[in-house]
Amino acid sequence: MGEHFDKALIFTDLHIVSEGETIIGLDPLARFSEGLAHALDRHPDAQHLILLGDLTHTGAQAEYDRLIPVLADCPVPITVTMGNHDTRAILGAAFPGALNADGFAQTALDLGPLRLLVLDTHDDDGQAPLEHDGWLCKTRLAWLDAELARAARDGRDVVVFTHHPPCPVGFWAMDAIGLANADALLDRLHAAPHVKHLICGHIHRTIHASAGGLPVTILKSPCHQNPMILGQGTFADSVDEPGAYGILLALDDTIVVHTEDFALSSGKVQRYK
């Protein structure tokens, strides 16, 4: 195995608020800024930065306006998609090129030997049963079909990204607002043997799962987290625990997803005796 890592950094659920506002006493912008600096300092060789939805807390213009300067000097290409707290038109204006020709924040990009397919699960039109549910419409699913076929022709293994997980995780309130038409996604992914991993956000917790045999990694927020109360009945509960980001590595024939907490300590590496 060589020394080169094909590497992408992943942040999800930033929940940026307007100036002077906080979430459970935390400033999400300060937490994200700290996490991004931590990630770029330790992984300057990263080739992509993926922001996996819920960039803002209410989807307001002022929230995106606070986020953009933090990303202005980012030395790696940035890919963004939408979560249930985002606003499509404002996000599209804040990140030119983020929306494809169909108006969705869906992107296909390469990381070494991998094809990364970033899907947009934001429900604009109320097609999903509940307000914060995710939804993949026929247009988005057709895009996925075409990109899966293209990746197969190109001989590339695929990692898929969605904000909303397509599988239950044991938090009842969050499971109720997952990807409402999850079967439409999973049927396609299970039928494509070159799809190797699925990476999601939304839950504000680090979780490893299997959706019908497909490995799933769910990453937590750089800001507030979902408390470990399995079966809880509300998604409004939050806890001040360390934020984190994900690191995707393509290593020969192996896909690795690390999760890195930050703000725990100085991060100085010391050797014990």
Rank of each mutant, 00 (worst) to 15 (best):
I218R: 01
A108I: 06
A142S: 13
K196Q: 10
G97I: 06
V256G: 06
H164E: 07
L248D: 12
G213W: 02
L51K: 05
D253N: 11
P44E: 12
F161E: 03
V195M: 07
V169P: 00
L198E: 04
V118P: 00
D120V: 07
H208I: 11
D261A: 14
L40Q: 10
A211F: 04
V256A: 14
T12S: 15
A72V: 09
G213A: 11
L117D: 01
A8K: 04
H38I: 02
H48G: 00
I247Y: 08
H164M: 05
A149M: 09
S210W: 06
L249M: 11
G59Q: 04
L185Q: 09
F171T: 04
G170R: 03
H208C: 11
H4D: 12
S210E: 12
R156E: 04
G155W: 10
C200K: 05
D237V: 13
A128S: 15
I229N: 11
P44C: 06
W172R: 15
E21P: 00
L116V: 09
P168G: 05
A39C: 05
H258A: 13
L141S: 12
A62G: 10
E34Q: 15
I199P: 10
P165F: 04
G92F: 04
V195L: 07
M174V: 02
G92N: 03
M174F: 15
T107F: 00
A182G: 09
G20N: 05
A244T: 00
V256F: 09
P113H: 09
I177S: 13
A30C: 06
P165M: 01
G134V: 04
G233E: 11
R150Q: 14
V256E: 09
L49K: 08
V76N: 03
L141T: 06
L179G: 01
F5Q: 11
A236S: 14
L36N: 00
D175K: 07
H204W: 02
L148Y: 00
A152H: 15
G246V: 08
D45T: 12
V159G: 02
A101S: 15
L109Y: 06
D157H: 07
H258N: 13
P165W: 01
V257K: 12
L114I: 02
A151P: 06
W135P: 02
A211K: 06
L99S: 00
V269Q: 13
F95W: 05
H48D: 09
L214F: 08
R153W: 11
